[in-house]
Design a protein around this nucleic acid. Structure first.
Lengths: 253, 253
DNA sequence: GCTTACAGGCTTGTATACAAGATTGTCGCC
DNA sequence: GGCGACAATCTTGTATACAAGCCTGTAAGC
């Protein structure tokens, strides 16, 4: 594949995985083209690849948008992850020591990030755990699949997760690694199943299937005093104008 | 997505699934553009999507080629299928009656095709079984993943499978469905694991990692009498010239 | 006779131009 | 004042033009 095109694709995907780009964000071709210093053609390539991978969508003659998975799609994504990740643990006969070591280090990093209150890298690490785990099998194909899936569930969490129970997730990860170390992979699989189930159960899938959801909350409690309180444009500002995309998407303020 | 572009993508992918296009086949942009009556742009889109899905590859300024998975990739593909499909059966709590009915009908069709000696639809059906099974969960995401994976293993079989044990495969499918009907999904998963293992074991992964493999066989047994026997161009004729792609890839003659 | 350099043709890579549709702001009308 | 039509603007969709690199066939040199 082309290095430049791959870079654009990678840049956007990892920004999503890291939670730096919100679901529903519009990604204009020209804007990205300017940003990366190439023509629209290359950006379009990257976008179409990402569309195939299920992380962006095109709305005809309106633009590219980071997907906002529906409740139905959210359920599918979690089910898919459950199927694949428990299947992975089940088919793992033994865990190589270096993989175990790397996973333990990862969990330690999670705890540090949580302790430091680093929201940004925290979310990133929690998703990364599963990708690391996929690496355990040394199967690139599977890793790629889980990576794409994780991107989707990350977006889902951003859409539907009222409160991120980071400590609980990290603790689950720890237990899973412990079971792996003990060689009880069936148990690890069961824990993984529960873990994903918990994350899914923690979502409020009735919350915001549409961008107007934020509105409704304002409308119902008698509001509408004098001036509509500016309706803080939920998305549609991919990169303000310069490329200093630093603010880590702190939505819940 | 665009209907026309999607059609090109679909057409090529299903031709691969049906075994009508051989691994290693070159797919020229202009040729396909003429064939579908569009410009190269659209063909390129379709190709790049297919590249993301892992079924074609581009060789810089030479052309697009249907992938020829290496032995390593073949192992990964089968392992991935094993992980996902056993995981699927494990996480299936119960099997809806209509799904069971549909699977039984499918297996019956397999047997008919085998009985009739219909090589073409036979291979197609054997792959389709797994896709149908994915439908059992009603999870489009998972179905899509398995579909792409099946495309790859189909190509792998075309590359490495000396003799296709169709009857055995169909019998395996039958057993799996029987276990599902009996409600013993753990058993079904075990059977699936064995089944995929058998298919993988039936491959000769040392066979032809390169297009010259057919050559070596000719070279070693003292051959080279007078004229090199024409080296029947192993691939490189996507659609001869008109679009009457009817010959069902009977390679093993 | 064999090897090497070169030229021509063919294929993709990339940018650009133009067409078609969507959105939004404005003006006229009721 | 409110509503609807219209025009300006912006965005993607598609095709085409040209650049750049690979492959092959040919001819010259050894």
């Amino acid at each position: 594949m082309n290095p430049a095109t791959a870079n654009i694709e990678e840049a956007i995907l990892s920004a999503i995985l890291a939670g730096r780009i919100n679901p529903g964000t519009r990604l204009g071709e020209q804007k990205l083209a300017d940003l990366f210093g190439v023509s629209r053609t290359r950006v379009r390539e990257a976008m179409m690849r990402l569309e195939t991978r299920g992380v962006v969508q095109v709305s005809a003659r309106r633009g590219w948008y980071v997907v906002e998975p529906s409740a139905e799609e959210a359920r599918e994504a979690f089910q898919t992850r459950r199927v694949i990740e428990t299947g992975l643990l089940h088919s793992l006969r033994e865990v190589p020591p270096d993989v175990l070591k790397s996973l333990k280090e990862h969990v330690a990093m999670e705890r540090d990030a949580i302790g430091a209150g680093d929201v940004h890298s925290r979310a990133c690490l929690l998703g990364d755990f599963h990708i690391h785990l996929a690496d355990a099998l040394g199967n690139r194909m599977l890793t790629e699949i889980i990576r794409d899936l994780t991107a989707r569930t990350t977006l889902i969490s951003m859409l539907y997760q009222p409160t991120e129970k980071a400590e609980e997730s990290s603790h689950d990860h720890e237990d899973i690694v412990a079971a792996m170390e003990a060689g009880d992979l069936a148990h690890a699989a069961r824990l993984m199943d529960e873990h994903i189930g918990k994350v899914e159960a923690g979502l409020d899938l009735t919350a915001k299937p549409d961008p107007l959801a934020g509105l409704r909350a304002l409308l119902s409690p008698a509001a509408f005093a004098g001036n509509a309180p500016s309706v803080p444009h939920t998305h549609d500002h991919p990169h303000d104008h310069s490329h200093s995309h630093g603010h880590p998407a702190t939505k819940e303020d």
